[in-house]
Design a protein around this nucleic acid. Sequence first.
DNA 1: GTTTTAACACCTAGGTGTTAAGCT
DNA 2: AGCTTAACACCTAGGTGTTAAAAC
Lengths: 231, 231
Amino acid sequence: MENAQLSHGCDLLLPDCTEGGSPCFKAPQVTGVRVQLEMQALWQQFDQLGTEMIVTKAGRRMFPSFQVYISGLDPAADYVLLMDFIPVDDKRYRYAFHSSSWLVAGRADVATPGRMHFHPDSPARGAQWMKQTVSFDALKLTNNLLDDNGHVSVSQMILNSMHRYQPRFHVVYVDPGQDSQLHPHRNFCSFIFPETRFIAVTAYQNHRITQLKIASNPFAKGFRNTDPEDW
Amino acid sequence: MENAQLSHGCDLLLPDCTEGGSPCFKAPQVTGVRVQLEMQALWQQFDQLGTEMIVTKAGRRMFPSFQVYISGLDPAADYVLLMDFIPVDDKRYRYAFHSSSWLVAGRADVATPGRMHFHPDSPARGAQWMKQTVSFDALKLTNNLLDDNGHVSVSQMILNSMHRYQPRFHVVYVDPGQDSQLHPHRNFCSFIFPETRFIAVTAYQNHRITQLKIASNPFAKGFRNTDPEDW
DNA sequence: GTTTTAACACCTAGGTGTTAAGCT
DNA sequence: AGCTTAACACCTAGGTGTTAAAAC
């Protein structure tokens, strides 16, 4: 197993989850789920510099985009896949250009309602989700509570600029049974990849982040230098 | 019901379908299905001129694209949606420029294997299919049996140039039961919209078709005349 | 002579960081 | 001073008919 990549798994027993005094087990459809982050090396490169993600009123895609390879699902069962973003702490940050570092600038602003982003193909069979990489590239980050039409858009995740966030990924088994109440169990699995943490910004602060975005995002090719000494 | 548009329905009894001597009924999940062709007026405009669709080696999209609005599905049941193209006759055609009309040029060439095009979202719930127009815009027409990589591509429909075709649309109910063998019934519905017939070509023959494509397809805007007298 | 192919200019549609102006 | 916004040039990605050459 030389070139093997670490993939996250889902534990069978959840000690913190009890119902009626007895421990609560996960549904068999989610016990063996394994999730692997795509473009992990690139995520780590950004993370080492302190990843920044632009938020705009109209909504901005993430780069790198959140993509996972999933295995261990029940091919015939239905699943909903979704993402959310949780605050890493209750702080507000600002960037000190002279020292090229992030400083705490006070307590967090009032948290926006924690919205869930359903993958647009949800719900779908395990077989469908596993046959190729699942991409959340329709997801957009915004600092606006309403879209241009004054409506909430399902693909827009509302974040506070200058706050730090951790993306989370959830696999939810859709139980077709009517008697699922009688057999309580957790029907979902959550996954956190620490290297996907980022600070939301309205404009890039760290020049190294800007340069790495330009170097790695095909849509920013127009800003690349032919100069080979830059990186 | 003034502005009502005719929609196609699925008959309950299929007289031509018998099993064990008794008539074969449709599964209840497909008996009430109604399908309405989108952009019907545009399709009819093309049909009156004699619709032509380009086929290329790499695959060419249809214009207009085949889009339908579906109702009457069981919201909770699973369906597969697919299309195929059947030869209208066993003839080969050629275009007579002097008379601006299509002439029979002999018997049809050997028919290509009649491939089925599954809508990429298949299978999905009735509720998913009904909530918005279903578009087959990923479908491409080709005159090549293999794609660039030497593989068959699922989105490519193989057609013979200079032959006439009729698109068909099928709604297939995915029966989850294991005992479906014991209760034989037709689990699908087919729909034919005569105005979607066309002749496959490698280059447009009728100039009026070319002009109508240019006038109505946004991607051909570069060829539009500012001259208002053209159409 | 008829049909097919491949390169091409010109579009649609939309994702980038830049920049200057505006906001607080 | 710090942060946000909107217009912008410049890309990616890919769908058009045109055209001239090639194929049959």
